[in-house]
Amino acid sequence: MTRKQKRLSVIAAGLGFLGVATGLTFYALGQKASYFYMPADLATASLQPGQRIRLGGLVEKGTVERGHGATVAFSVTDNQKDVKVTYTGILPDLFREGQGVITEGSFGPDGIFVADSVLAKHDETYMPKEVADGLKAKGVWQESKSD
């Protein structure tokens, strides 16, 4: 091989590598990115059974039930629709009734959302951004300018 051919083959190998990496990245984005929904969006969303999504909204007041053991059930609402969620584990410290929350998981066959993670940010003025935007879009929440 001449020097030029060698160089070309090295460049070709590098490009091939990048191509594979790019392909992998976009495949992974398609497979592993989870979409964010509010309860009212679910009616129009076409979810495959078992598909992982993020479900956000407010923890509906008076719906938090601590069953036996470490399983907790509560409803997530956007003041239009609500969805029953179960979660086994320790809720974040800032999980409160009436506060914003994001849960991640998938729907069970009984229509109950089984979450494997629950997020509530570590900040007392927190409203998860997705939830805030969603509620604003639905006109049920105005940003309070408290600070």
Binding site: A21, T25, K32, A33, S34, Y35, F36, R52, R54
Partner: peptide, 24 residues
């Protein structure tokens, strides 16, 4: 950055978490 791009181009909100990074 993908969630930002998706949100800018469509109304969808997505999150990219550990499963994506583990795979790539």
């Amino acid at each position: 950055l993908y969630p930002l791009v998706v949100e800018a181009l469509s109304a969808d909100k997505i999150s990219v978490g550990a499963p994506f990074f583990n795979l790539t």
